[in-house]
Design a binder for these strands. Structure first.
Lengths: 192, 192
DNA sequence: CCGCTATTGTACCGTTCGGTACAACCACAA
DNA sequence: TTGTGGTTGTACCGAACGGTACAATAGCGG
C-alpha cells in the first residue's frame, strides 16, 4: 500500500464515489479501502466509527460543496433566470449528464434513511430554501415559491432515477434545460 | 416454522416488501426468510438462483400488477383527465402517500442497475408509453406527449425520493394532485 | 541523533453473508 | 400399505462482512 499522501478531503471524495454508486449497504469496507488506497486500520484511524463516520463525513463534505457551488450562487444577486441557469449547469456537470447517481437519493433507503435523516433533511431543506429565494425574488408568493422549489428538487432527483433506470441519455439534460423556464412560468389559475 | 400455506404470489409479495424497503444489497436472505416465513431451503426450492431469482420474480410480479392497476386504466377509453386522476389515485394508495419507497428507484443502484436493467427499463418504458397515449388522446403531438410522460414519471419518482429524504408528509400527495393538470396544460411557446 | 506521535500493515476476532447437502417429512395416489 | 414427489428443518460450507489489537513503521521536532 502506497504512503497515501492523500488529504482528508481527497479521501472523503473517494469515499463519496463508492457510496454514491453502491449505496450504504452495497459499499463494503474492502471497496472503500481499495478506493481510497488506505488499509482498514487507516480508515478506522480517521473514521473511528467505521462506515457510519465515513458516511457522515461524506455528507458533511457534500453539504460544503453544495453550499459554495450551488446554494451560494443561487443566493447571490442577479437575474433569477441567470441564477437558475447556473444551477442547471452546475448540476449537469456534477451528475455528468445523469450518468452519475445522487448520493442523497441512494441514502434515503432502508435503515440508512433514519440513521442519517438529520443530515439528509438538512441538505434537502437548504437546497429548496435557496431555490425558493430565487423565486421570491422573481415575484412569486412565499407559498408558490416554496412548492415550486420543492418541485425543482423533485424533478432533478426523479430525472436521475429515470435516467439510471431507463438508460436513456437525454432525460436528465432535458429536464435541466426545461427547469428554469418552468420554475419562472407565470402562475395560472387552477394550477400551482 | 409454520407449514407456510402461502401461495407463490403471497410469497413474492412479502419478498417485495423487504426489497423495496431495504434495496437489493440491504435485503439479506435471513430477512427474506423471516418475512416470508420460509426457511432458506424452501426459498431456494422456489427460487433456485437465490436473491437474483427472487428479485426477478418480484419485478415480474410488479410488472403484472402495474399492468392491470395502472397501465390498463390509462389505456382504457374515457376522458384524459379522468384517466390521469385514476393513475394519481392508484399511485397514492400504492405508495401509501409517499411513506412507502419505490422498488424501481431502489434497484437502479450499484450493480443491480445493470443486473436487472432490462426488466427495469421495460417497466419504465411501458409506464411512460401508457401516459403518452393519454396525452396523445388529449391532442398533444407525439414528441410533446412523450416528453411530458417522461416528466410525469420523473416527478413521481422524485417526489418519493424527496418525501423519504425530507420526511415531509405532504410532498408526495401534492405532487400527485398537481400532476394531471400540469400534464394537460396547453403548450406554451418557449416551453416544452 | 533521539523520542514522540501519527500512521500503517498484518493478523485476527466473531458474525453474517449467500448458498448447499441431505435426511426427514408430508399429502396423496396406487 | 407402500411408494413417491413436492416440500421443509437442520446442519453445514467457505467467503466476506464490519471491526479490533497491536506491533512496526514513518516522519518530524527537538
Amino acid at each position: 500500500m502506497p504512503p497515501a499522501s492523500l488529504s482528508r478531503t481527497e479521501v472523503i471524495e473517494r469515499l463519496t464515489v463508492v457510496l454514491r454508486q453502491q449505496g450504504f449497504a452495497g459499499a463494503s469496507l474492502a471497496e472503500l479501502s481499495k478506493a481510497t488506497g488506505l488499509g482498514k486500520s487507516s480508515l478506522y484511524h480517521y473514521f473511528p466509527d467505521g462506515k457510519d463516520d465515513m458516511t457522515r463525513a461524506v455528507l458533511a463534505h457534500l453539504a460544503e460543496q453544495l453550499q459554495e457551488a450551488l446554494f451560494a450562487p443561487l443566493l447571490a444577486p442577479g437575474p433569477a433566470r441567470r441564477r437558475l441557469d447556473a444551477m442547471a449547469g452546475t448540476l449537469n456537470t456534477f451528475y455528468r449528464g445523469g450518468r452519475e447517481a445522487c448520493l442523497l437519493g441512494n441514502l434515503v433507503v432502508g435503515e440508512t434513511r433514519d440513521r442519517f435523516h438529520e443530515e439528509l433533511a438538512a441538505i434537502f431543506e437548504q437546497w429548496i430554501a435557496a431555490i425558493a429565494v430565487v423565486l421570491r425574488d422573481a415575484g412569486f408568493s412565499r407559498t408558490l415559491a416554496r412548492t415550486r422549489a420543492e418541485d425543482a428538487v423533485i424533478r432533478i432527483e426523479g430525472a436521475l432515477v429515470l435516467a439510471a433506470g431507463s438508460g436513456q441519455e437525454g432525460v436528465f439534460e432535458r429536464t435541466l434545460r426545461q427547469l428554469p423556464a418552468d420554475l419562472l412560468a407565470p402562475a395560472k389559475a387552477g394550477r400551482d
